[in-house]
């Protein structure tokens, strides 16, 4: 019965749960999402993320030289190299495409990239019904 006093004290304290995004499930989720979009409904923010968090990949297409090291180290085979035409010397040029639905967020590609054109953003709300939606394919 060591917990008896503990639970009684807790009765008068605030719950530990972070009420993200809302306290109770709304009657209609679609309607609630619409309301949030219009700014009529405020959502509770998620817990703050620390610096150097590993979120969704962001990719600087201009800097990329198409060396393909990232595809070699990616454990999930989430990176694909796409030919984008030939340069002036007639050599095939490549750019990377990232499938976030396969990504394991290890950030090994970030470490491996010699031109530092890949980085991890702070974005982590990535749920989607389509694996190939615009939000889940980074070009």
């Amino acid at each position: 019965m060591t917990m008896a006093f503990e639970v009684f004290k807790q009765l008068f304290k605030k719950p530990f749960t972070n009420k993200f995004p809302v306290k109770y499930i709304p009657k209609s989720v679609t309607a609630a999402v619409e309301k949030i979009g219009k700014g009529e409904l405020k959502i509770n923010p998620p817990i703050e993320i620390p610096p150097n968090f590993r979120g969704k990949i962001s990719y600087d297409r201009e800097k990329c030289i198409g060396c393909g090291i990232c595809t070699k180290v990616c454990p999930a085979h989430a990176i694909e190299l796409i030919p984008t035409g030939k340069d002036e010397k007639g050599k095939e040029k490549y750019k990377a495409i990232f499938y976030i639905s396969r990504c394991t967020f290890c950030s090994q590609c970030v470490d491996a990239c010699p031109k530092e054109c890949i980085s991890m953003s702070n974005e982590f709300l990535l749920a989607d019904t389509d694996r190939f939606s615009d939000a889940l394919v980074v070009k």
């Binding site: 620390p50 150097n52 968090f53 590993r54 394991t104 967020f105 290890c106 950030s107 470490d111 991890m120």
Partner: peptide, 23 residues
């Protein structure tokens, strides 16, 4: 929280590298 703070993620820490650590 401490693990997330040190490694960038809560569960899959991805901090080990062959021959050392990454962060």
């Amino acid at each position: 929280d401490v693990i997330e703070y040190l490694t960038g993620n809560r569960v899959n820490k991805a901090i080990y590298m062959i021959g050392g650590v990454r962060r």
